[in-house]
Design a protein around this nucleic acid. Structure first.
Length: 745
DNA sequence: CAGACAAGGCTTTTT
DNA sequence: GCCTTGTCTG
């Protein structure tokens, strides 16, 4: 039976969709309709009634991608697809662990620890082991443990390899940390991927069960899989061998998280009988942007190679803009946004501002705010990692999983209820003596001897309140429980009386959290709803811990989007502005020594460029405040990124606005063309207040000290501080406001 | 035991 | 330079 679905596809896409049995590798260039192929393939399998929904497993890296795929498959078919497993690697694994966790000694109400929780647990372990935390920092230990888990090295393998004293200490911490997680009925992020594999080894029957169930497996973004992902996919597909992976080696950008580009490069070796389909027609960008991106990425050695082409022939040239410093960069960005909006009748959400590091957003925000341009920042300090949110979530976690000692420690004396450090230590000691958990110690508080009866009362009342709410779990909705907790423990109180803007924002965040729990309850809880019986608090907490900031981002909201290049993967915008195109920042200087790292930076640039549909801007700043070594907050003079040179002249126009005073300066680099700046006058006037006329390298005359050269400029709350070297007096630190300096040419 | 102030750390990217 | 954590004082 021929399917109408095939009519919407180009020949390459169609051959990928029509391939039914056996391994399939789809090399999908940026914007080549990858999601389309995946969804149509699922739709085709289901429509032809060859496969049942519950026989399909589709995995992605972000919830956004998973939800999008689900939505689009449903749009293609006339029948529901309940029972299909479609989700992120982490959520699929969490689901398996909820079902099978008992075989590993876990209860199904386990908690998932994020990085903050993990570090806190490690701190706790280090205290117990009496390891000096100023010599070995908990973050360091965490990094080593997480890195080991990503490489699938357990504590015993780590211990065996440990050579140095520090490594042997980390091995001890690793052991204790694992014990603590088990005691807390908690998995960390890395465990979610590894523990199912442990389970499969331990209980082959369970592996067999899932192998039989999933007749067709589809994997998105295969280029970003690490060792654990790789084995998961390989093991689950071993029986039916209907494994379809989609990826683009040029977009592999998670090496630092253990992703191994070799997984996709050697797929053909793993499955010699696999079919390979290349999707090279791009439906997103203009030919100019594509050709430029192709030229850049062709400098990489490690790639399978492909050449993207587009029907959108021609297109505007890429504009490369040089600014004087990060403030000037922000102003140029404002100008670009205004002119694009006026010229092409765009809305704010058609424009994305991308950068290498989150720290760059601050300077850009500042200028956008002054220019009254609405913006949203995706990433940075994540919503669910904010203090006030984690406080509320900690209560919910303890109610769902009382063994979660990390959460319990957080709330036991917050808000303050007179259970101070000394009391907590006594409780911990009791728990250790009785071989039990902290929560159990609270329950048994009346048995503990050296506590005053006043303290005992406080603890008893606290734990009884928790117990009462816990009993409501079975009958009340997630929202009712959460709202009850916030009210009972007065979690809004510390912020309600304050008029500080920060506190008002915190209050709003708590309200937003409650709203999100309410909509979760509505979406899932209603009888006959999409997920009947899944509106539990437990499920909510799992969802929340696996959410990313991109998942929370609303592309329809009318605001310019600011995010890192990593976060932008998989998205597209009519206008893309990439900031901080400087040697040392992008590519980062720490990648200079390592060709593999440098290639990854280049791929990241490729990802950024190919997000743009119509216009691409690349902006850099000659001077930028950066953190380097122990010289924090110092300004550095930069040259433009080497990546810019990899774009052939025919695809770009270069301009420079390297000016702060009344006159423009020509760049010493001749290849950069000098033009008059269309600078925004009001924003420029406010810049002047910060004494922008003083630049490193300028010569000045001081009434008393004579002629000197500026070696440093610091702009602080006390005003602008200048370091000036005078021939007569040597180095002097001066406050610009009082020094009465004259700049000389 | 809580609030105010100082010191120290940090910034590459995140499920 | 800014934010988080630790220490001191009331």
């Amino acid at each position: 039976m021929p399917s109408k679905l095939l009519d919407d596809l180009n020949p390459a896409q169609r051959s990928a969709v029509e391939h039914i049995n056996g391994p399939l590798l789809i090399l999908a260039g940026a914007g080549s309709g990858k999601t389309r192929v995946l969804t149509y393939r699922i739709g085709y399998l289901l429509e032809q009634r060859m496969v049942r929904p519950y026989e399909i497993l589709a995995v992605t890296f972000t919830n956004k991608a998973a939800n999008e795929m689900k939505r689009r498959v449903e749009g293609l078919l006339q029948f529901p697809i309940d029972g299909m497993w479609i989700g992120t690697f982490h959520s699929v694994c969490a689901r398996i662990l909820r079902i099978e966790g008992a075989h590993l000694g876990y209860d199904s109400n386990f908690t998932i620890y994020d990085q903050d929780d993990q570090v806190r647990q490690i701190q706790q372990v280090m205290e117990g082991l009496n390891i000096n935390q100023s010599i070995l920092k908990p973050r360091q230990a965490h990094y080593a443990i997480s890195d080991s888990k990503n490489k699938m090295l357990g504590p015993e393998q780590y211990e065996r390899r440990a050579g140095t004293l520090v490594e042997r200490q980390i091995a001890k911490i690793y052991w204790e940390y694992e014990t603590a997680l088990r005691r807390n009925n908690a998995f960390d992020f890395d465990d979610l991927l590894i523990k199912p594999l442990d389970l499969f080894t331990k209980e082959p029957a369970i592996l067999e069960k899932y192998q039989s169930k999933f007749k067709y497996i589809l994997v998105d973004e295969y280029q970003d899989t690490n060792k654990a992902h790789y084995y998961l996919v390989r093991q689950l597909s071993a029986k039916h061998r209907n494994i379809c992976v989609v990826g683009d080696e040029d977009q592999s950008i998670y090496r630092w998280r253990g992703a191994d580009i070799e997984n996709i490069l050697s797929f053909e070796k793993d499955y010699p009988d696999c079919e390979v389909v290349r999707l090279e027609q791009n439906y997103r960008s203009t030919q100019v942007i594509l050709s430029a991106a192709n030229s850049v990425v062709s400098n990489n050695q490690k790639r399978l190679g492909k050449n993207l082409w587009s029907r959108k022939t021609g297109g505007e040239k890429i504009r490369v803009i040089g600014a004087s410093d990060e403030g000037g960069e922000g102003l140029e960005v404002v100008n670009v946004i205004r002119s694009e909006m006026a010229k092409n009748r765009l809305s704010y959400n058609d424009i994305a501002l991308l950068y290498r590091t989150n720290a760059q957003s601050r300077a850009l925000e500042d200028k956008l705010r002054r220019a009254n341009i609405p913006y949203v920042i995706v990433g940075g300090t994540r919503f669910y990692e904010r203090k006030e949110i984690k406080d509320v979530l900690a209560y919910l976690r303890v109610i769902v999983n009382p063994r979660d000692a990390v959460a319990l420690r957080r709330i036991v004396n917050y808000p303050a209820r007179g259970i101070g450090m000394t009391t907590q230590q006594k409780l911990e000691q009791y728990a250790a003596e009785q071989q039990t958990g902290l929560y159990q110690a609270l329950l048994e508080v009346l048995e503990i001897k050296d506590l005053s009866s006043g303290i005992k009362d406080k603890i008893h009342s606290f734990v009884s309140t928790l117990e009462t709410i816990r009993k409501e779990l079975k009958t009340a909705s997630a929202f009712e429980v959460a709202a009850g907790v916030v009210k009972t423990f007065a979690l809004k109180n510390p912020y309600e009386l304050s008029t500080l803007p920060d506190d008002e924002a915190r209050l709003e965040n708590i309200n937003e959290l409650l709203n999100s729990i309410a909509s979760f309850t509505e979406a899932r809880g209603a009888a006959g709803g999409e997920f009947p019986g899944e509106a539990t608090l437990e499920k909510y907490l799992e969802d929340v811990s696996l959410l990313t900031d991109v998942d929370r981002w609303d592309p329809g909201f009318s605001a310019v989007t600011l995010m890192t290049l990593h976060s932008a993967k998989g998205l597209e915008f009519p206008v893309v502005i990439i900031c901080g195109m400087e040697q040392g920042l992008f590519p980062l200087s720490r990648t200079f020594g390592n060709p593999d790292d440098l290639e990854e930076e280049r791929r990241l640039f490729y990802v950024g460029m190919t997000r743009a549909k119509d216009s691409l801007y690349l902006v850099w700043a000659r001077q930028r405040r950066r953190f380097s070594g122990n010289d924090y907050g110092a300004s550095f003079i930069n040259t433009s990124s080497k990546f810019l040179e990899e774009i052939p002249e025919e695809y770009k126009n270069e301009e420079i606005y390297d000016n702060f005073g009344s006159q423009y300066r020509k760049s010493r680099q001749q290849r950069i063309r000098f033009e008059e700046s269309p600078r925004d006058v009001s924003a420029y006037a406010s810049e002047m207040l910060d004494h922008p006329e003083y630049k490193i390298g300028d010569w000045v005359i001081h009434d008393e000290f004579g002629r000197g050269q500026i070696l440093g400029v610091e702009r602080g709350s006390a005003g602008t501080r200048l370091s000036v070297f005078f021939k007569s007096k040597g180095l002097k630190k001066l406050i610009a406001e009082y020094a009465n300096l004259r700049v000389v040419e």
